[in-house]
């Protein structure tokens, strides 16, 4: 990254005609984007061969700000859209950048099956515990007892544990950081991008406008301070211990890093190298 006095060093990877972005003051999505950009720069990838696919929601807007081939698709369908791109052109490095509601709720099935197939995608899941774009409704990740506009008496549904879901579905790389662990997050994104297969990086991110306001948790900076004081780095922690309780300690770290053949590898090994597909046509 060449730094200059008159230009922000990340400008080459941003659509500067769309900055300032729509994210609220104190939101952690912008911070996650800087980590992603730094990771891309450090990896020295061919930026023409990197695609970003987003769904709908606050994090869904990432596709509109990153100066790469970027696709802002329908709600929940970022992963299958990315699957299509990856299988259509396996040369491309495809990154899914979306939120917890998009990936875990409406897109949950796609998340599970892309992990099972081990499609070579990097999923960056920004988890702000809430549906923020629509005004702060309860999400599949909202911790128990937390208030949202649609859980006005406190949330009583058990939230999803994203790393555990990813691990059990078959992801090969799973990490969780907060938006404050910016350098560790960058390193995890680098590792995830290099890892062949379905890799998931969950980013716990402050939502200053909806989640913290309705729960009286202060501004974005107060949420960051909370992360600072309450996050505990435990690498390789069994993922069943990674539930997040309301305003309790958040375990972060790198939990899963394992090898499984990717969809493309298996396809090539089975159908091309092993020639299982010979003379099986119906007519």
């Amino acid at each position: 990254m060449i730094k200059k006095e008159d230009h922000h060093p990340m400008e080459s990877l941003l659509r500067m005609d769309r900055i300032p972005h729509i994210w609220c003051p104190g939101c952690g999505i912008g911070t996650t984007v800087t980590a992603f950009i730094v990771a891309l720069e450090k990896l020295k990838l061919d930026f023409n061969k990197v695609c970003v696919v987003s769904g709908i929601g606050c994090t869904g807007r990432v596709a509109g700000y990153i100066n790469l081939d970027s696709f802002h698709t329908t709600h929940g369908r970022a992963i299958p859209f990315a699957t299509g791109i990856k299988l259509g052109n396996p040369e491309l490095k495809v990154v899914v950048f979306s939120g917890d509601g998009d990936l875990i709720s409406i897109g949950g099935n796609h998340f599970i099956h892309a992990a099972r197939r081990n499609i070579d995608l990097t999923v960056i899941c920004v988890n702000n515990f809430i549906y923020a774009m629509t005004g702060g409704q309860v999400a599949p990740t909202t911790p128990l007892t937390a208030y949202t506009t649609t859980s006005p008496y406190g949330n009583f549904e058990l939230p999803s544990n994203v790393p555990q879901l990813a691990e059990s579905a078959g992801a090969v790389y799973v990490a969780r950081w907060t938006a404050l662990h910016i350098r560790r997050l960058t390193n995890s994104i680098i590792e995830a991008l290099q890892k062949p297969g379905f890799s998931v990086v969950e980013v716990i991110s402050p939502c200053a406008m909806y989640y913290s306001r309705i729960n009286r948790l202060g501004d974005g900076i107060d949420m960051m301070k909370f992360y600072h004081e309450n996050s505990v780095i435990k690498h390789n922690e069994p993922t069943e211990n990674l539930d997040i309780d309301y305003q309790k300690e958040i375990i972060v770290g790198k939990f899963i890093n394992r090898e499984r053949p990717t969809f493309t590898d298996s396809y090539n090994d089975w159908l091309v190298t092993e020639k299982k597909a010979q003379s099986k046509s119906m007519i």
Partner: peptide, 22 residues
């Protein structure tokens, strides 16, 4: 490539992605 997706929502989205991949 033939891929049997997890549901029709997935299959149509993958089709869109593949079309944009050329």
């Amino acid at each position: 490539i033939f891929i049997q997706m997890e549901d029709e929502l997935g299959s149509i989205s993958a089709v869109l992605g593949a079309s944009w991949a050329g």
